[in-house]
Design a protein around this nucleic acid. Structure first.
Length: 259
DNA sequence: ATGGCTAGGCTCCCTAGA
């Protein structure tokens, strides 16, 4: 089963590029971030016509996440548990009903800039809530994945110019430590389980010819529970998508799972 | 890089992104 994450930076703006990638890559499950749409405005029929079930958790203007799946989805949860007052649409969970039921968590972790400040406080609080949710899911001892736009640069090798990010919310020591706390619960980061070394990115800024200069960062990640890590067969970053017509500033990242 | 571009709001400039 091929499972992907893709921050599309607006469903309306990606109304051609997203179906183009789906047709070429044929993923079974896709977690989308930054749909920038309310549920009622999401063009679900377009994806249903391509064979996908569609579950959205949108909001007006910003954020918004969704799951597309060729297999039935059950037990959909919208919103990251732990703060009923949080109105930002950044988390959606569902169980993909294949031969092995697979819990999928699609996430759009807060950017957090500028740091320090209230936006950074929100990022760290959100990461603490995610840690609690992952801890609860791990207790079930079942295969599950948390994939999405983490807005975390894990290590220096994950940025073309790491020194430019030292004061940024994506790369501050506190951010990286909070991310490691989630990994240290027992989660496996799929890409680094398979690929070593620098030069692998998932985001290139629209500004300053960042793509042409390969000035990128790797911030879109797939985390696997121990039972899901047992099933990992492949992981890829579809970097060539960034060179297509009217691209998102992120590219898809996907895993192949033996399930 | 004190923001060079992109997206969405309900706009003719603002916020937000990373």
């Amino acid at each position: 089963m091929k499972i992907a994450t893709f921050n599309i930076n607006g469903i309306k703006a990606r109304i051609e590029a997203l179906p183009r990638w789906l047709a070429a890559a044929t993923p079974d499950v896709v977690c989308l971030q930054e749909i920038k749409s309310v549920d009622e405005s999401f063009p679900r029929e377009m994806f249903e016509d391509m064979g996908y079930r569609v579950e959205t958790h949108g909001q007006k203007g910003f954020n918004g996440v969704a799951i597309l799946s060729r297999l039935p989805l059950e037990e959909v949860v919208r919103g990251l548990p732990g703060d009923p007052a949080d109105e930002q649409a950044r988390w959606i969970e569902a169980t993909v009903m294949g031969a092995v039921p697979l819990r999928i968590c699609g996430l759009y972790l807060p950017n957090g800039n500028p740091a320090p400040g209230p936006k950074y406080d929100y990022k760290l609080a959100w990461m603490a809530r995610m840690e609690a949710r992952v801890r609860a899911l791990l207790a079930l001892e079942e295969p599950f994945l948390c994939l999405g736009d983490y807005n975390v640069i894990p290590q220096r090798e994950d940025a073309a110019k790491p020194d430019a990010w030292l004061e940024d919310a994506l790369f501050l020591p506190q951010t990286r430590a909070a991310y490691r706390r989630i990994l240290n619960l027992g989660m496996t980061e799929a890409f680094r389980a398979r690929v070593q070394g620098p030069g692998h990115y998932s985001f290139w800024d629209y500004q300053a010819n960042a793509w042409e200069r390969n000035n990128g960062i790797r911030i879109d990640h797939v985390l696997l529970s121990p039972q899901a890590a047992d099933l990992l067969r492949d992981v890829q970053i579809d970097r060539e998508v960034r060179a297509g017509d009217k691209p998102s500033d992120h590219v898809p990242v996907w895993v192949e799972i033996a399930a």
